[in-house]
Amino acid sequence: MSESSGPRDAEHGPTGVAHNARVWNYWLGGKDYYDVDGQVGDHVTGMYPIIGEVARADRAFLGRAVTHLAGEAGIRQFLDIGTGLPTVDNTHEVAQRIAPESRIVYVDNDPTVLLHANALLTSSPKGVTDYIEADAHDPDTILRAAGRTLDFDRPVAVMMLGILNFVLDTEEARSIVERLVAAVPSGSYLVLTHPTVELGGEANTEAMRFWNENATPPITARTRAEVAGFFEALELLDPGIVSCSHWRPEATSGSTDEPQVVPQFGAVARKP
């Protein structure tokens, strides 16, 4: 996608409103965004200078979590909800690098992501990838469609990175997670990241207000206690609910130095 400020129709792209998937791509250094996305992204960065670090830390967390699950945990099925635009080391690339037979289902409801979905379907010959156009607010539709590719009698890693923050009502968000977790068997995992105004993220409050007035979809932060509510009845893996940059950073860096704390919680938990 080339950068453009011109309006487009609802089926194929923006009409002058910044969208999270494209702005996130902008913060990650990608090319799949429009002028309006870059403008909003720059304004948010001015208000909240570490947002680019948050985006990169979230992406790096994905790589470490999937590496652990496909490797040591032996998971071969991944349900990635709120996929976002394809970038480097997507879930299927990380998983299939370790276990080529892995099966991955991506879920998003952004038309821009749909346009680029072919980049998510480059599975290894032994594995499978699929893309579902569906809304995270509708877990039953997601589960029905994912059942074409995934075997829900075998463990599944349910991945919800930076998606529950778009479900503004916390009880509804918990209900969505509970429905998804209930559908997968013992030995499955929940992988989650979520923005917070804790961990030094107080400056994000005004940035989120600006976002909600100028971009879509609207977003909310949550506390550690609220994020912990998503993991009820699950077994959190060490080190628990932490800044996503601090979730097993040594797994990729090989360094014992503490990385920068970013105000984005990350956690992985197992269904007993």
Rank of each mutant, 00 (worst) to 15 (best):
R8S: 14
P100K: 07
S4T: 06
A117S: 15
T193I: 05
G52K: 13
V242C: 07
A73D: 10
A225W: 00
L237H: 08
D58K: 00
N204M: 08
I98W: 03
T252Q: 10
A134H: 07
G187R: 03
V197L: 13
Y34C: 05
D169W: 04
L85E: 11
W27I: 04
G84F: 02
T122A: 15
G187M: 06
A145T: 13
R224C: 01
E235D: 15
Y34V: 01
L192R: 03
H116S: 15
W24V: 10
Q96P: 13
V262L: 09
F152N: 10
R8A: 14
T83C: 12
H137M: 10
G147V: 08
I163M: 14
T83N: 06
P14R: 15
E93R: 11
A146I: 02
L192N: 09
L190V: 02
G229Y: 03
T193G: 05
I241L: 05
L236F: 04
S5R: 11
N118D: 15
A225Q: 11
P272I: 07
G162L: 10
D257P: 02
S2Y: 08
A145P: 01
T196N: 07
D58Y: 00
Q39P: 00
G201F: 08
P139T: 07
D32Y: 04
G147C: 06
S243C: 04
C244V: 12
A18Q: 08
R59I: 04
E213F: 00
M1C: 05
P259N: 02
A203C: 01
Q260A: 15
P139S: 10
L164G: 01
P195T: 13
E133F: 15
D138Q: 11
V181G: 10
H68Q: 14
Y131D: 05
G6D: 00
V113Q: 01
H12P: 00
N109Y: 02
L85N: 13
N214S: 12
P49S: 07
E72S: 14
L234P: 01
A183E: 13
P111A: 04
A136C: 13
A146G: 06
V94W: 15
D37L: 10
Q39T: 13
A267H: 11
S123D: 14
R179K: 13
V107A: 04
L164I: 01
D32K: 07
M160R: 05
M1H: 11
V94L: 14
A65Q: 11
G38W: 11
A207P: 10
S245N: 09
G266H: 02
G201T: 04
A119Q: 10
T223N: 05
H12Q: 13
D169H: 08
Y26D: 00
V54G: 04
V181H: 09
G46A: 07
A221C: 06
R56I: 07
A57Y: 08
N165M: 14
P49K: 04
V17F: 00
P217T: 06
V177A: 06
G6T: 00
A136L: 12
Q264L: 12
L114Q: 14
G6Q: 00
T149Y: 06
G16A: 09
D135K: 11
W27E: 09
R103H: 12
E235K: 11
G6L: 01
T67F: 01
G254C: 07
V54A: 06
Q77M: 14
V36M: 01
A136D: 01
